[in-house]
Design a protein around this nucleic acid. Structure first.
Lengths: 340, 340
DNA sequence: CTGAAAGCGCTTACAG
DNA sequence: CTGAAAGCGCTTACAG
């Protein structure tokens, strides 16, 4: 592997001069030497040793993507996470950083990999709100949490208006004549996103003198687990005559429910209407196409990485948060029953 | 940040002794000192500086995952890639390596990131066969290509029996009475996987005195692009009376086609039968549930990382390749028309 | 079992 | 504009 020293010898200059060329400090080098050194660099395909640079500069240009890993579940099997991570990696790379990806189970492992690599900034996906404070105190690097509802003030968060998402779903159902509703989500005890969507949903119901029967709230721990899904399908089937519409917090889960219900002879939207969340690709791959609450994942990824980049370039910059808008995308999974 | 030196001073021993403790060379340290040093290490939450270690050992414990990035497409928006990458990251991490993820557009960028970080091993997804030789000569580290059909002998590849997948689809269609068939895939000029599936498919047809009309082969460059998909839907719609069944090389694309055809009044399997590929989750989220060729992505990920790990632990080990089996999973997207 | 020396490849800070 | 010195935090190779 060619080093600065090798190049310096061949160019009959000091190592420092080559370093200046490599690092673009061209004003510190005479025009002739610059050209000559660049040619030699090119000829030998010189590539900087990131470890050496990282060691002396005490930073690494690595941005870590931390994915909470839940038991055996594949963290990238969710449509939302997969697309988001794909997009984040692209942004990270486009800004000249390296993307390291970590599946994390506890705070200890987060801090270990941040510190061992002197990771410069970190992005957190799927963390529980109560862990965030702990993480935040662990390492003093710029961090952005995605979709968190932690109460810590100094924290950068990029999320969406989940509350509005819930509102939109409820308003749309009501507009279409639905008053007996159900709600399906991951268990919401520790997930702010779910709590907010639920709150937006029930607040609108309340404004219309309606309410969500606790018996019509169903939870699915892992939407990748067929048993969990079919259990939810059975629960909905059992109350089919008590409800006319279901709000589901992810399109993937909604799709699974629709196909499960179909097997039980319950057709969407004929027998039950449904609204999903995310506007994932699957919402147009199924029949009926799914009415859903859309969010802009590319923008989410871009704001996340831009925020970190900004803070890395301006150490004094304070933490900033972003709340992205959501919108209802009308398709065909909700039946208009106002006429009935 | 606490260093070996700090620990050494506090323990009144040399830096070397602490290093031996940290690296588990416990036989080189007396029992008493060992305990004492471990306690101090623990107390200060010592974490090794990976850059320093990497610099002197000329390796990094980083395994790079190289994803071919195609224009604007999100490389993780494909169900297959997302799940595979999720699984690979888990395996990499479980074996004590770090996962760096790179979207690559050209060979240059591959070599740059491998060399700058002294990446120890690399995994390639979605590479074109003709680039592989070039990549292979670029860096002398263990590499595994996934789903490649490069002719280079020394190369480690982990793939599936695509040819058999094609055979299974054709045999099943024929068994169900289908003789006028279509084939939908990405453009297959440079993708071995597609070529093999097609060859398996047409070879079986030939054995039965049948053939695939070139006019019934459709290609979709990016299944994430709605325009591309609806173009394929229109093409199929136009020949609907000439065919009774379609073999599609991915479940995601099959799902999109089914829903697109549905909008054109063509129902699967009533009007057209369909077989997909991968047995992705979506195959059971749609209606009708998709008959498909299944492959084991978890195993694929495990073999990939195990192969690399083996070669890293045994520098003399030669490149090994794996071809995983596939199987047809029967669901409801193929109509039995033998009686008609 | 223990440690002093040299060096991995680079940058910072300084002197010319 | 140019370069000699020191050091980032660690490991290897060797001497005791």
């Amino acid at each position: 592997m060619v080093t600065l020293k090798d190049i310096a010898e061949e160019a009959h200059v000091s190592l420092m001069t080559v370093s200046n060329v490599v690092n673009g400090k061209h004003n510190k080098v005479s025009k002739e030497k610059l050209k000559e050194i660049q040619a030699i660099l090119e000829k030998h395909h010189y590539i900087q040793n990131a470890s050496a640079r990282s060691l002396v500069k005490a930073n690494s240009n690595i941005i870590a993507i931390m994915l909470r890993s839940i038991a055996d579940e594949n963290s990238l099997s969710s449509l939302h996470n997969a697309r988001l991570v794909g997009s984040i990696v692209r942004q990270v790379q486009d800004l000249g950083y390296y993307a390291m990806i970590n599946l994390v189970e506890d705070c200890e492992s987060i801090s270990r990999s941040i510190r061992t690599w002197r990771v410069q900034a970190a992005i957190f996906l799927g963390m529980f709100d109560d862990e965030i404070e702990q993480i935040y105190e662990l390492c003093n690097i710029p961090m952005v949490f995605i979709d968190s509802y932690s109460k810590i003030r100094q924290l950068s968060n990029v999320g969406i208006n989940d509350y509005k998402g819930g509102q939109l779903a409820a308003e749309y159902f009501i507009k279409k004549g639905h008053t007996r509703l159900a709600f399906v989500s991951p268990p919401n005890n520790d997930i702010g996103v779910v709590q907010q969507r639920l709150k937006g949903f029930t607040d609108v119901l309340a404004q219309h003198g309606l309410s969500l029967d606790p018996l019509h709230r169903f939870s699915v721990v892992s939407e990748a687990d067929p048993d969990q899904v079919s259990q939810a399908v059975d629960q909905i089937t059992r109350v089919r005559n008590e409800i006319t519409a279901v709000f589901v917090t992810s399109d993937g889960l909604a799709a699974s429910l629709i196909s499960g219900l179909h097997r039980n002879g319950i057709h969407v939207p004929r027998d039950i209407s449904m609204i999903g969340f995310d506007n994932s690709r699957i919402s147009t791959q199924i029949y009926p196409p799914l009415t859903t609450i859309s969010q802009d994942l590319e923008l989410k990824a871009r704001l996340t990485v831009d925020t970190l980049n900004h803070r890395l370039k301006n150490p004094d910059a304070s933490a900033e948060s972003h709340v992205l808008d959501v919108a209802l995308v009308e398709r065909e999974s909700v039946l208009d029953i106002t006429g009935l």
